[in-house]
């Protein structure tokens, strides 16, 4: 079956005073209809930029998608003109963001902000849109929806605002919802509710979900397929159970190891030594080499490619390339 979304060799760069930063450096992946794909990685590894590139929302002129293709349905999003892209954005492809508190316009009523995409994409009349907006607020589990529709964002809590953001995003029944760290700014009980809600919407509407997170707990709970990014590249990907059971890349192993486990008390939580490299100083190498316990000579001078390792998993690591050469 043809995948719903196919990202091929995507490159996104940012020009800064110090030089050009390759925020996304040649990544490829796909999302099938009804599937949940999680992109995991530390801050600054290019997760959000990937999402922004798909939405066509990379901040120009500093940032620019410099290469690749993003096939969504029958269209290449990177080849569409602004008008065509706007017709898809918020309609078939929707997105929610990390900071619900600042993601809604402070001077417009909640109802108005939900009505906008309804009137734009579904061509609803004002009255129909208003009624539909109230219905959407009810669907995201907020009581007294009429009253909420008439209030302003500062009158609602962070969790409620993120529900409103979800209501806006799913209002036009998108085929793919991109959620960029949707629960990071919220407290834990609310996080679970928000994730449940996303799952419910996904199951009832059959939409696909591209979930960007740094929280492996969220990944384990939500994902069908996991993509691990590091410094703008994919270092490992695979089915969620396989990847959690047998992580291949030392970075993935490090991530899994640094996750606290319930009921097990340790003196000190494990953390991967070192920091994400400065994206301006990258040379051809495995970008993880200076933090890796298995670093070899080849890792410092040559870049490993993403290789299939049987069982559907892929990893970009010289450990497995070596093994293959020996075999």
């Amino acid at each position: 079956m043809k995948p719903l979304l196919k990202v091929e060799n995507l490159h996104t760069e940012f020009r800064t005073d110090e030089g050009t930063v390759k925020a996304v450096d040649g990544i490829s992946f796909q999302v099938r209809a009804g599937e949940t794909v999680c992109i995991v990685g530390e801050s600054g590894c290019g997760k959000s930029v990937t999402a922004m590139s798909m939405m066509g929302l990379v901040e120009e002129p500093a940032g620019k998608v410099t290469g690749g293709a993003i096939t969504f349905g029958d269209d290449d999003l990177l080849r569409l003109n602004k008008h065509e892209l706007r017709a898809i954005r918020g309609h078939e492809l929707a997105m929610i963001f990390q900071e619900p508190m600042s993601s809604l316009n402070p001077v417009l009523k909640i109802g108005e902000q939900i009505m906008e995409p309804l009137m734009l994409h579904l061509k609803l009349k004002r009255k129909e849109a208003a009624a539909h907006a109230v219905e959407l607020i009810r669907q995201v589990g907020i009581s007294r929806p009429e009253q909420i529709a008439a209030s302003y964002p500062h009158e609602l809590s962070g969790g409620m605002l993120q529900r409103i953001m979800i209501a806006i995003a799913v209002s036009c029944s998108p085929k793919l919802l991109i959620a960029d760290e949707p629960t990071t700014a919220l407290d834990v009980t609310i996080q679970a509710q928000i994730l449940d809600m996303l799952r419910t919407f996904k199951e009832s509407s059959g939409m696909s979900l591209l979930l960007i997170t740094h929280d492996l707990g969220v990944v384990a709970e939500m994902a069908d397929y996991v993509i691990v990014m590091y410094a703008g590249k994919i270092v490992e990907e695979g089915e969620v159970t396989a990847l959690f059971a047998d992580p291949k890349h030392p970075y993935t192993r490090g991530l899994l190891k640094s996750k606290p486990v319930m009921g097990r008390r340790t003196e000190e939580l494990y953390s991967i030594p070192g920091q994400v490299p400065n994206p301006l100083e990258l040379t051809p190498s495995c970008y993880f080499h200076d933090r890796c316990g298995h670093c070899m000579e080849v890792c410092v001078s040559r870049e490993p490619l993403l290789q299939p390792l049987g069982n559907g998993q892929k990893a970009a690591c010289w450990l497995y390339e070596e093994a293959k050469i020996h075999v």
Binding site: R86, A87, R89, G90, S103, P106, E116, P117, L120
Partner: peptide, 12 residues
């Protein structure tokens, strides 16, 4: 601001 990004993400 973030809400401008949201407005664009709606396709406005």
């Amino acid at each position: 601001q973030d809400y401008i990004r949201t407005a664009r993400a709606k396709g406005l």
